[in-house]
Simulated assay, not measured.
Amino acid sequence: MSPTARGALALGAAALSALVLPPVLSVFALLAVGSGIVVDALGARRAPEVVQELPGILARGVPARLSLRSDSDGRAVRLRQPRLADVAIEPQEGDGTLDAQVIGLRRGRHTLPTPAARVVGSLGLGCWYHRPGEPREVAVYPDLPGARRLAIAVRTGRFRDEGRRSRGPLGLGTDFESIRDYSPDDDVRQLNWRATERLGRPMSNTYRVERDRDVVCVVDCGRLMAAPLGDRTRLDAAIDAAVAVAAVADEVGDRAGVLAFDREILRRLAPRRAGARAVVQALFDIEPRPVDSDYELAFRHVGESKRAFVLVLTDLLEEAAARPLLAALPLLA
């Protein structure tokens, strides 16, 4: 309970009236104004019902809509949604309703504070502050729109550099299929020199694009990944890349998995079909820790599985940091 700006001005005017009125009248005026403020505030004591609409999942850096609605019953209600350091809200206040943009600035789980409501009495002299509702948890995911755009580009055949000619989906493939006559559009790597020499004319190998591959993203979460990279960290960039790779794997029919590590294994997800959602769930709340990364430990766990395409996402700022990685690489062979 507190006076409004109008109530404060009325109290000030009653106090100044002592300069021109007898003391008894001034005291009476102060009591009258003070009583009016109390009575007015008590009339605003009933808490309004506030309905909050907010997605439970945000993508880092992507605006989402926050809506607050109150049943004011004719009363003047000022709504405010407190913000967090890692979740931006603009604007934060509104009269009766609040339509705002919410932007998750940092991956992970965050709890938005309970909205605040200031109800003003019918006289406009006093108000009552309420905290209707409950705190709201939101999950801030990596850059999902970017991953979806990449997957759509692969699906529609637009995943190539501008001006370069497409030669089939995602390269030549590695599974040998047959030998045929050479075509001018063939890549020189397709030439079968033994068949060309034997038959006396150019011959080419044809390959099938591999399907049902296992794709494993190995994400370093050690101290070097905490270094800033624009408006994010290197770990943010690595997780964005892992999510994009998993989305493309879903699109082309591969199985996606992930392993996150520093000096120990933090998360491990075996490759699976339609694994992009599981990869996001496994990585979105991981933060870098101030420890050195154990590449040998991570590669030993990856080497236990069957043949797979392994993508290591790390950052090597100095030559000394690359030595443990190079020493551990034979474990992936």
Rank of each mutant, 00 (worst) to 15 (best):
R158M: 10
A41G: 15
V120L: 14
A29G: 07
Y182M: 13
A244D: 09
V312M: 00
L25G: 07
L229S: 11
A249H: 02
L326N: 08
V243E: 10
G275Y: 06
G200D: 14
G275Q: 06
P82L: 11
G34T: 07
E90W: 05
A320D: 14
L326M: 12
G34V: 01
A117Q: 09
T4P: 01
D185Q: 11
A32K: 01
R194P: 00
Q281R: 14
L229A: 13
R45P: 00
L259I: 10
G74N: 09
E197D: 13
L98G: 02
P202G: 05
G275S: 09
L313I: 04
A147P: 01
G257Y: 03
D250A: 07
S183W: 01
S293Q: 05
A10V: 05
Q92H: 05
D73C: 07
A29C: 11
R65M: 05
D40F: 07
V77I: 15
R213M: 13
I89A: 10
T156D: 15
G173P: 10
M1T: 06
V258L: 14
A147G: 06
G56Y: 02
L68C: 03
E318D: 15
L170G: 05
R263F: 08
D86L: 10
A246E: 01
R213W: 03
I179M: 07
I57Q: 13
D220S: 12
G230E: 11
D186L: 09
D231M: 08
L54N: 01
